[in-house]
Amino acid sequence: MIKVEFLGPIGLNPIELNVKTVEELSESLKKISAMDQWIGISAIAINDKMVTNSEDCMLSDGDVVSVLPPVCGG
């Protein structure tokens, strides 16, 4: 089981999921309608470490995944 937290204006309460990869995680998050606007544009951190090529990442029991929204302005 992993924990997923949604930061900033995503604003959802943390959830727990039984998934083994970030790809599986993405599929689960797509089922949450409030995530529609954030899927595909947000960044991902696992245990406070940012990840690139996140689809390939394996997840372990107890991992905490943070979903970070994009911020564009300056």
Binding site: G8, P9, S42, A43, I44, T52, V71, C72
Partner: peptide, 25 residues
């Protein structure tokens, strides 16, 4: 980067910007 009531700050040295999606937002 900054919008609404949130923003990011980072001193990039060796790490790349690749953890963010490069969108046309």
């Amino acid at each position: 980067s900054v919008e609404a009531f949130h923003g990011y700050v980072c001193f990039y040295d060796k790490a790349s910007f690749d953890s963010f999606k490069i969108s046309d937002q």
